[in-house]
Design a protein around this nucleic acid. Structure first.
Lengths: 397, 397
DNA sequence: TTAGTTTGTTTAGACCACATACAAACAAGC
DNA sequence: GCTTGTTTGTATGTGGTCTAAACAAACTAA
């Protein structure tokens, strides 16, 4: 019956199944006991037992022996997240292509970086991705462990329509209107997910970094421009078409400075990594070197510039605090050491421009996760999809 | 068993029950047929039949006869939203207190306004609310229809912590740190919900007004200050403590004008209703009169001021577009006719300051709902709660 | 009157999670 | 070493929710 029911609305009674919830816990904790799952979810022991065995059957988890703890009562059986389920992260940048394989338990199984002498076009980049991944898949297949790849997560430094998988604008890569997801799906025959780099950085910091446990987070990442990621109530702010959280283009001053998009007085126009390098007499140095130079070689000029930038950043932060009332604010990239240059001044600026109420309990952190941050975020993109529908992504149908 | 399970995490398998989904549809459509419910939800006919009868038993809906339509096949039975389930909206303002009763089918059953010669304090306002509501309840009890009041929705022009029900700051009322929800709950013995006025205006416009059907909406309401409401992906942006969406305090200029909170260069400092009145030689006039004066008596001075304000509003809108990528932007209060003064100019400003991608498909509307907008929003506050747990709020336990 | 369509109703069954009861595995105390 | 109390795993029956299938009911169109 119901042949042409076509539920036009997505309203389905299913909700989030208990299987997904338990799998999410296993993924989040990497290792957890059955009894912990009981107390965290409120599910009964019998239900948890059944769910865990199906997850083990699906290959997402492995049963470990009884956990040894000095406590009264029967020790609970442990459950480990699978080391064989993989997500592959792909990160194209101006001068390199980085590919990593992340296991469901968070370990980085594989990592490689292909360097480019000069920027390559979008289509060439896709060809390279396919080549690298195909070889990686072949390597993994002949290895001792029986790996299983759940999908690909692509990290794009630019605006993405996450529902269509089209790169709208990636100014530094000089890509535009590029349907990267469909191109990769076609040639790789596995699920491909695409997201903005800052969004993935935020996701990773929330899962395992500075914002762990927080549900309302604003994240700002400074590279050449300033990218943003926002999670409210645990879910990502995507907006109508998926271009939300373009925080760098927020106008905060009536000045005439232009940013990368030709808009005046924006955060991105006022807080520029290039200017910091210039005032310190540097050019094209790494974040580490720039941090050392900025924090240790303080000149009147560099101090004045850093303060100006900190003021702009503080005003932007206050604006965002008023708008979002976040629990945690995370500063990444060069904003990390701009903040460290004079964090007291930064907090004074915020206090001056934000409503007192929104600052109560708000915390400012710098990013904790290092080089693998984006890869972990990209793997989360894949894993969260698998967690939402374990039966579909698991081993035996 | 499981006596001290204490599920520390809220993760519960329940999800949104089908009963809630169907009740939501009935409330949204006011009148709907069983077969429409089937196709909208994807539920089977037998399930829908059972759910509808329980909802009728609970008093939320009434079964109507077969709907008469010229179509092949057996006509489907109609279901109407109850006219007896009520929510009471309470709106304290500087010079009045307005109380309305809204039925579950959206009709305004009762409406009254008590005027004040001079501002009254918070405690006196609560005493008046209790008095008015007690009398209203008594009146409704002796009426022909057997009304049933589900709860109270309080509309507050100020910052609210919606989880604690405390008014943090209501500058015009001169209330601060006032636990209005607990005070009312104590004296009225029914569920009380409190929310910000702009948030409720947005909720109402999304349910039955300019933003109907949209899921990503930014709403700005201009009265003395500028309040905001934001809904992303269908859910309200509340933030960590519930103070999110303070859009009026966004800083967009480096000018020295102060706003009501003493912050410089903010939207609220640049777009002021008072200034519009002054330039037109008016004082304390109604929105209707100000609109007529602004649109019909165009002087060089008023045009210049309106343009300056429109530019500031446009920059703020562009910022918010970049941040939220909304589907619909709703302008209410005096922003409504400020926009109408020169909407082409407004759109030009937006185009200049926003990323092109976020403007695709974005629509700017003025509010559609009139005087009952806030009451409807406040009733939604109560009704959504009842819809989430029909068994709790229904007639027979 | 007949055929085709659409909806309401009844019945049996699948699925999920729970409570209960019992067994198993531990620490602490005697 | 034995008992007691605690905590967890497992097996079984039950209740709730939703579905599929089959049939009856109510309509249009010819």
């Amino acid at each position: 019956m119901n042949p042409k029911a076509t539920p036009m609305f997505e309203t389905r009674a299913s909700g989030q199944s208990s299987l997904s919830i338990v799998l999410g816990l296993i993924h989040e904790h990497r290792a957890i006991t059955r009894s912990e799952i009981c107390s965290l979810t409120g599910l009964s022991r019998s239900t948890v037992a059944k769910l865990v065995t199906t997850l083990v059957d699906l290959g997402f988890a492995s049963d470990t022996g009884a956990e040894q703890i000095d406590r009264v009562g029967r020790p609970s059986m442990g459950v480990d997240a699978s080391k064989e389920m993989l997500a592959i992260s792909v990160h194209p940048e101006v001068d390199y292509l980085e590919v990593k394989a992340v296991a469901f338990d968070g370990t980085i199984v594989h990592s490689e970086k292909r360097l480019y002498d000069e920027p390559i076009g979008a289509y060439q980049a896709v060809a390279d991705m396919v080549q690298v991944i195909d070889r990686l898949v072949a390597e993994l297949e002949v290895s001792d462990t029986s790996y299983r790849i759940l999908g690909i997560g692509v990290i794009v430094p630019g605006q993405i329509n996450s529902s269509t998988g089209i790169v709208r604008q990636a100014p530094h890569l000089q890509w535009s209107e590029f349907p990267i997801r469909d191109l990769l799906t076609e040639r790789l025959s596995m699920p491909v997910f695409v997201a903005n780099d800052a969004s993935l950085g935020c996701k990773a910091e929330m899962a395992y970094g500075a914002a762990k446990g927080a549900t309302d987070v604003v994240y700002m990442h400074g590279t050449s421009g300033i990218g943003g990621g926002v999670f409210m109530n645990g879910t990502e702010l995507k907006g109508f078409r998926g271009y939300a959280a373009e925080l760098g283009h927020m106008r905060i001053s009536s000045g005439k400075e232009l940013d990368y998009s030709g808009i005046r007085g924006t955060l991105e126009a006022l807080v520029r990594r290039d200017d910091l390098e210039t005032v310190l007499g540097l050019k094209n140095v790494s974040d580490e070197d720039l941090e050392i130079a900025l924090l240790n070689n303080r000149t009147p000029e560099s101090t004045a510039l850093a303060r100006r930038q900190l003021e702009a950043l503080g005003i932007a932060t206050a604006n965002l605090a008023n708008i979002f009332n976040p629990e945690v604010f995370v500063l990444a990239g060069f904003l990390r050491f701009l903040y460290r240059f004079d964090q007291n001044y930064f907090h004074r600026v915020i206090k001056k421009h934000a409503i007192p109420a929104v600052l109560e309990g708000m915390q400012v952190f710098v990013n904790e996760l290092g080089t693998n941050s984006l890869a972990i975020g990209a793997s989360e993109l894949v894993f969260q999809e698998a967690i939402a529908d374990p039966a579909k992504y698991g081993k035996r149908k």
